[in-house]
Design a protein around this nucleic acid. Structure first.
Length: 316
DNA sequence: GACAGAATAT
DNA sequence: CATATTCTGT
C-alpha cells in the first residue's frame, strides 16, 4: 500500500561490497572474520548429512535474501509505532544504534521451515522436541503450520542474551512480551514464549531485590541511552563449556534415546547449549551469595554466532 | 478481542 | 527445574 519508507538507513548492510565507509567497526568487534564464516552460498550441512537426516536441501540463499528478510523485518517494525515509549526504544534501530549486540542487526530464524536465511550471522533458534530434524510428513490431516504443537522452546544462552539485551534496552517498564518478541526478532518465537521467560526473569529479579553486591539494572530508563551494561542477566550458565563441546547446537531433549543428533557443524564457535539454571534461592534462605551460574549476558564479545532453533513446523 | 501478568500444568 | 498452558483482569 505505500512503500514510502525506503531503506535508506538500511543500506549500511554489507551489501556495498567494499563499502567500508558505511561500516561501523565497533559492531564488528568480536565477530568472526569473513573468512571464518561459511559463505551463504554454502549449505551448513553437507548433502550427505542432510540426506541422512532427511533434511530438505536448502534453497540457495544469497546475501540478497538475507538483506531482504532483514529489511522487511526492520520496515515492518517501523511501520508500527506502537506507543510512545516503545517507539522511542525502537528508535535505536534506525539512526545509529550504538548497541554492541542487540537486536535485529541480524534476523533470527526460528524454525527451519525453509524460507528464511540461515547463516553464521543469522541467528537461529532451536527447539527441543521430536528426535529427528525432520518431523514425519504428517500423514493425513494436518494443515500445514497450523494446529501443530511446537516443540518446547529451549532458551539457549544466545536467545537469552538477546532477551536480556532487548529487555535492558527497553527498560523494565516497556519490556512487555510483545515488544520484546518483536525486538528480539527471532522468527518463530512467540509472545507466550517470551511472556513465560519474562515471568521467570521478573521473579528472579524480585527475588534479588535489595541484594547488595550485584547491581540491578535500572527499572526504567530514558528514551535514548546507550546499552549500559547495567543489566541484570539472570544466571545463565554457559560461557565456557568446561567439557569440550564443539558441536553447535540443537538443544535436544534428553528424552530420546542416545540419538544425539547434533549437527556436526564444524563451527568452532562453541554454541552454548541451553542455559542451565536459575539460581534457586530460598525465600528465607540466609545465604544468597551463591552464584550457581551466571547468565552470560555480560558477554559482550560473544556475538551470537548461531542460535539454532528448529521447529517442526512442517509445512506442507 | 488483544494483551500482560500471574497461576497452574506438564 | 524450565517451559507451556490456562486463567484473570485490563
Amino acid at each position: 500500500m505505500g512503500e514510502e519508507a525506503d531503506s535508506k538507513d538500511c543500506d549500511m548492510v554489507a551489501g556495498d561490497g567494499e563499502g567500508d565507509e558505511g561500516r561501523v567497526l565497533e559492531w564488528e568487534v568480536g565477530l568472526p572474520s569473513a573468512d571464518d564464516l561459511i559463505p551463504l552460498s554454502q549449505s551448513l550441512i553437507s548433502p550427505d548429512l542432510a540426506y541422512a537426516f532427511s533434511i530438505a536441501p536448502e534453497p540457495a540463499r544469497t546475501l540478497l535474501d538475507v538483506h531482504r528478510a532483514s529489511q522487511s523485518t526492520v520496515s515492518s517494525l517501523r511501520r508500527h509505532p506502537t506507543s510512545s515509549s516503545a517507539a522511542a526504544a525502537l528508535n535505536f534501530f534506525s539512526p545509529f544504534p550504538s548497541l554492541s549486540s542487540v537486536v535485529a542487526d541480524d534476523p533470527v530464524v526460528l524454525d527451519g521451515e525453509g524460507d528464511d536465511a540461515e547463516d553464521g550471522t543469522t541467528a537461529t533458534v532451536s527447539t527441543a522436541g521430536e528426535s529427528s530434524c525432520v518431523p514425519p510428513e504428517n500423514s493425513g490431516d494436518d494443515h500445514s503450520s497450523r494446529s501443530l504443537k511446537r516443540p518446547r522452546l529451549v532458551w539457549t544462552a544466545q536467545l537469552h542474551k538477546r532477551f536480556i539485551d532487548v529487555v535492558s534496552h527497553l527498560g523494565i517498564k516497556n519490556a512487555v512480551p510483545k515488544t520484546i518478541m518483536q525486538l528480539m526478532n527471532v522468527d518463530g518465537l512467540t509472545r507466550e514464549n517470551v511472556a513465560s521467560h519474562l515471568q521467570k526473569y521478573r521473579l528472579y529479579r524480585k527475588r534479588m531485590e535489595g541484594i547488595p553486591g550485584v547491581g540491578l539494572p535500572p527499572s526504567d530508563h530514558f528514551p535514548h541511552e546507550p546499552p549500559s551494561q547495567t543489566l541484570m542477566p539472570m544466571p545463565y550458565g554457559v560461557p565456557p563449556p568446561p567439557v569440550p563441546m564443539p558441536v553447535f547446537g540443537i538443544s535436544f531433549h534428553p528424552g530420546h534415546s542416545g540419538a544425539k543428533e547434533m549437527m556436526p557443524v564444524v563451527s568452532r564457535h562453541q554454541a552454548a547449549g541451553a542455559y542451565h539454571g536459575f539460581v534457586s534461592h530460598h525465600p528465607n534462605g540466609g545465604a544468597i551469595g551463591d552464584q550457581q551460574g551466571d547468565w552470560s549476558a555480560g558477554n559482550k564479545s560473544g556475538v551470537d554466532a548461531g542460535l539454532c532453533f528448529r521447529s517442526q513446523q512442517v509445512s506442507s
